[in-house]
């Protein structure tokens, strides 16, 4: 012991100095990094906002917004996008929650395979996916094929890399198999298990998957345009070709539309977490 101790002391000392050096350097350094990153995100938004309020001879005007709000197409395309988004979210959850649960409980060995499949839309060009989906559903009645429902079907597939991961990782974080077995041994069937045990415990994943999918639907242009649906992003592009300030105003509105629900949900959730973990076990 005595011979080892002197050898060790200088080492621990230097490593201690190193970490405190980093800490000393860290505080201003951190603020610099944060400021730079903040500027990178905020400057374009602020400039866009400024531009959208700019009238003739640099005067301030809200005419870009009033004109937009007065356009029937603004409301109809927004409504269409929201409708497609909500439909996609519901379809995604209805398909993926049972899938993810089943894979974890019964086919744990295939988890990697399913994960790989879920990533395919990132690898395969979206035009190919789009045509694939259209071809697959060709036989379906016109009520699906000729309406925005087909767009939802497309988006379920295209948003898969985000939605599947969000759900999969939240299921991964709980011991699903044991919880299911515990519930079954207490007399619960699958519906009650889903309602009282599974859904509450993967709520974070469900909300994450929903937000990501919804945001994806509200911003997707290529597929909607290819299938000749005038969704909100398609409208945005059309407006941009005629009136630049309106297009910028429009994109700011779209930004708010995805930000506000996201912020609200995040806030609500972090508060719930905090209130739950205030009591600490004392033995």
């Amino acid at each position: 012991m005595a011979t080892i101790a002197p050898d060790l002391t200088p080492n621990t000392k230097t490593s201690g100095n190193d970490s405190s050096d980093v800490l000393k350097l860290g505080r201003p350094f951190r603020y610099i990094v944060l400021t730079l990153v903040g500027l990178f995100f905020i400057v374009p938004i602020v400039s866009s906002a400024r531009f959208s309020f700019l009238g003739n001879h640099n005067s301030f005007t809200i005419s870009a917004y009033t004109q937009l709000f007065g356009t029937a197409q603004f409301w109809s395309t927004l409504f269409l996008s929201v409708k497609v988004g909500v439909g996609t979210v519901f379809l995604t959850l209805a398909l993926l929650i049972p899938t993810v649960v089943w894979v974890h409980v019964r086919l744990p060995k295939l988890r990697r395979v399913f994960e790989a499949i879920s990533l395919l839309p990132l690898v395969v060009p979206s035009v190919v996916v789009t045509l694939g989906v259209i071809t697959s559903f060709r036989g379906l009645p016109n009520i699906i094929y000729g309406t925005p429902v087909i767009l939802s079907l497309e988006y379920v597939v295209l948003a898969l890399p985000f939605s599947y991961r969000a759900l999969d990782s939240s299921v991964q974080s709980i011991d699903l198999k044991t919880l299911v077995e515990a519930g079954q041994s207490l007399g619960a069937g699958w519906i009650k298990l889903l309602r009282f045990v599974l859904l509450p415990n993967i709520r974070g994943g469900i909300i994450g998957a929903s937000i990501l999918t919804f945001a994806f639907c509200l911003g997707e242009f290529a597929v909607a345009s290819l299938l000749s649906f005038t969704t909100f992003p398609v409208f945005l592009v059309q407006v941009g070709q005629l009136a630049a300030s309106q297009a910028v105003a429009l994109s700011l509105i779209a930004l708010l539309f995805t930000w506000i629900p996201l912020a609200v949900i995040t806030l609500v959730f972090s508060q719930r977490r905090a209130s739950r973990s205030t009591v600490v076990a004392d033995e």
């Binding site: 709980i174 011991d175 044991t178 919880l179 077995e181 515990a182 519930g183 041994s185 007399g187 009282f196 045990v197 509450p200 415990n201």
Partner: peptide, 14 residues
């Protein structure tokens, strides 16, 4: 109608 106690982590976290 069998009561079961598992090794661990079987309580419903919610």
């Amino acid at each position: 109608n069998i009561g079961m106690v598992f090794q661990s982590y079987s309580l419903f976290p919610n």
